[in-house]
Design a protein around this nucleic acid. Structure first.
Lengths: 131, 131
DNA sequence: CAGTATCCGATTGGATACTG
DNA sequence: CAGTATCCAATCGGATACTG
């Protein structure tokens, strides 16, 4: 049997620089305002909807629901309904979510540590802009 | 002179979980559809506006201009006008931009490597959804 | 070449009200 | 408690046309 096919990979590597590449959509989803923050908030243990809403200060129920559904659809978060009265639902990271976690944390940390300098630059830029 | 102030840091550490924390705005800006991709596209060398536009397949001039202005305002990108005829403008990463680069690349790579699995999950989810 | 200005449809996201 | 449905304002973002 020929080994020629080894020289011609059947699938091109995904590349977000290419417009049609769906990885761009994925990157967009991860950027979606609450996605990474939600992942970080779920880091250590299952968290209930309400608790999550409190932890992500300022999120609306609508956005939290939407964000969680997207994360579940992407296999990053698992939803389980507990048969209590009244019902409770908790969310936890999947293995894939865990895998993304360090990256999410790094980005959050990067933003937090550079924040002060960046805000200073923002002010400088805005002053120059105003002539 | 007293050292008491060392026990009471004047500024709280920024924490993106807090609604008022501006680091959340920063995270949002980095998520902004083209921001990380633009940073990656500028990784190795100064790139001209037009070249950048070609590299970020599908971006409009408007969005590219907007993205670059935001990145410049955040001190991640530096813009320099070359006195040629017709004029040329190139963009390059600042030290701070370079510092963010590995993170941006990691996120892009993560998205690209998990893409296939995630799309499979998406399809499964959508089927279940449709009953 | 490197943008900006404008128009306009699509998407985002909060507030409020409602449900099992 | 854990959402969903609806309404609406603000923003996003592409297409097109224009400028130094």
């Amino acid at each position: 049997m020929s080994n020629l096919h080894l020289l011609q990979p059947p699938e091109p590597a995904p590349d977000a620089f290419i417009a049609a590449c769906p990885s761009r959509g994925l990157i967009a989803r991860l950027g979606e305002k609450w996605a990474l923050l939600a992942i970080i908030a779920l880091a250590d243990e299952p968290v209930r909807f309400g608790a999550l809403k409190r932890r992500l200060e300022g999120i609306s129920a609508k956005m939290l629901g939407q964000t969680l559904r997207t994360l579940e659809r992407d296999g990053l978060v698992e939803r389980s309904v507990l048969a209590t009265r009244p019902i409770a639902v908790d969310y936890r990271l999947t293995r894939r979510g865990d895998d993304l976690l360090p990256l999410a944390r790094s980005l959050k940390r990067w933003a937090e540590t550079h924040l002060a300098d960046i805000e200073a630059d923002n002010r400088r830029y805005d002053e120059r802009e105003a002539h």
